[in-house]
């Protein structure tokens, strides 16, 4: 009988204890963060989406070689001697047109290995992490500042220059060869004499 009343009392009492606890929690500030409008501050050295500052890029291809998953594709074209591409922020002279600088973020493993070899510190990790896409192709980011036409122009320019050089070289070689041939003929008699001389020696 005593146990019975004790049970009754405990049943009611514990309910009230629980109710007081939940009532206190009514006034505890919420822990919810309303994500898209409020964001948690990220740590200082977060590794998220890659970014390339093309003003500083010299097209050295070191990042692409460092990448363990081959997500960086770089194509470059040599500039013409008369073209001035300017200098990077830390004073390196740019000599290459970067016609293609694609980073496939879908492949990227955020290891940051590409960041360290860069001589001009132009490739780095940003704190942007909201770049979901519906198509995987949309995750290939093109950083090259040249348009396709411009890139083609640079390639043609370069090829022209090379062709000209080649032609010049060929012409020079031809001229040289002709000159050589001439001198050879002239030299032939002397050489023979020389040979004889040599033989005699």
């Amino acid at each position: 009988m005593k146990q019975y009343f004790k049970n009754t009392w405990e049943g009611l009492y514990t309910v009230f204890v629980g109710m007081i606890i939940t009532f206190k929690h009514l006034f505890v500030p919420s822990v919810t963060i309303q994500y898209p409008s409020v964001k948690v501050p990220l740590p200082e050295r977060v590794r998220n989406r890659l970014y390339v500052n093309m003003d500083d890029c010299i097209g050295c291809d070191q990042c692409a070689r460092a990448c363990p998953v081959n997500c960086i594709t770089i194509e470059t074209v040599k500039s013409l001697p008369e073209e001035d591409l300017g200098k990077t922020s830390n004073g390196k002279k740019k000599a290459l047109w970067v016609t293609k600088f694609d980073i496939d973020i879908a492949k990227c493993c955020y290891c940051q290995l590409c960041v360290f070899p860069c001589p001009t510190e132009c490739i780095y990790m940003t704190d942007v992490y909201e770049f979901a896409e519906f198509e995987r192709n949309n995750l290939i980011f093109n950083f090259a500042t040249l348009t396709a036409d411009e890139a083609e122009e640079k390639i043609i320019n370069y090829e022209k220059m090379m062709a000209e050089k080649e032609a010049q070289k060929a012409a020079a070689a031809k001229a040289k060869a002709e000159a050589a041939a001439k001198t050879k003929k002239e030299d032939n008699s002397t050489e023979k004499n020389n040979g004889k001389e040599k033989d005699s020696e």
């Binding site: 939940t22 929690h25 009514l26 919420s30 822990v31 919810t32 309303q34």
Partner: peptide
């Protein structure tokens, strides 16, 4: 709302 506040959440917002 009550359930959210009791669990330190915000509920529908």
């Amino acid at each position: 709302k009550i359930s959210a506040f009791m669990q330190d959440r915000l509920g529908p917002m």
